[in-house]
Amino acid sequence: MAFLELTDVDKSYGDHQVLNGITLQVEKHQVVCLIGASGCGKSTLLRTINGLEEIQGGEISLDGDVISGEGVDLNAIRTRIGIVFQSFNLFPHMTALENITLAPRRVLGVSKAEADDYAMKLLTRVGLADKANAYPDKLSGGQQQRVAIVRAVAMNPDVILLDEITSALDPELVAEVLNIVKDLAAEGLTIVMATHEMSFAREVADTIAFLHEGRVLESGPPDQIFTAPREERTREFLHRIVEAGRL
């Protein structure tokens, strides 16, 4: 069994089926990038993994524990699976440091001194130690997104989910955020990432999963997906990406 495993996962909103029999395996320390057109189910898939969306069928497991369905402890799951969204979702009335230390103190019971110390180490790693006492409205979009990533990492999760984390950023800010992800991947953090940054996905991912109409149409190593995709729909998608100059 894979470290993180989705088996025949279904998700619908009323009559609209968003995920249709999704099966995906993620090994520990792997980076899996979800690609596909807008509306294919990438974001919904990530939200089902940490219980933000209930599934109607199938099963999700983490390190052998079932984490979907009735009776699961969602709060416990969310201490093991961090998520970062395209909108930064920082608390506007809290400083960067306070945003990062809130969950470790409230949820994990870490002391203020220990939480502050760890948060400062993380902020230093992402080049934001001097912004520890700044409020979100005094930070650029790229800085806010780096704080959001640090906030997720501060919980020491087993898996981190990244949902189009660069799509709300100006182009010149994208690289500074992706460099943080690259560093986390190099350190062995297990990452599942929905992204439109194809060159980044090709460079960093262990596995690429191409989603189409709520299904994983095909998955494999980046070289195979980007140079020799098996499915016609994958070839069409990548052709459009190349034409747009994004690969």
Rank of each mutant, 00 (worst) to 15 (best):
R78I: 06
L123D: 05
I100H: 07
A115H: 07
A201T: 07
Q25E: 14
T79L: 11
L169T: 11
G36D: 10
I49R: 10
G188S: 05
E54F: 11
G141V: 09
S111T: 15
T195R: 08
R235I: 08
K121I: 01
L217Y: 06
R106Q: 15
T207P: 02
A194H: 08
V192D: 05
K138I: 01
V147T: 05
I55R: 12
L46M: 11
V181P: 13
E197F: 04
I180F: 14
L123Y: 04
A119L: 07
L19D: 02
H29N: 15
L74A: 05
S43Y: 03
E232D: 15
E164N: 04
R125D: 08
N75K: 05
E53W: 04
V31H: 14
E54N: 14
D137Y: 15
L24R: 13
R106I: 07
L139I: 12
E176A: 12
I165Y: 06
Q25C: 08
F91S: 03
V66H: 00
Q56Y: 02
S68K: 10
G127Y: 01
A129D: 09
M120H: 14
M94F: 12
D206Y: 01
S219L: 13
H29D: 13
I77A: 07
L189S: 00
V126F: 11
F88W: 02
A148K: 03
D117H: 14
L184R: 14
A134L: 02
M193W: 06
L90K: 04
S199Y: 00
L169I: 05
L90N: 02
L102A: 08
L169M: 07
R125K: 15
K11N: 00
V110I: 15
Q56S: 13
F91A: 08
K42L: 09
G64C: 06
Q145S: 10
E231A: 15
N75C: 00
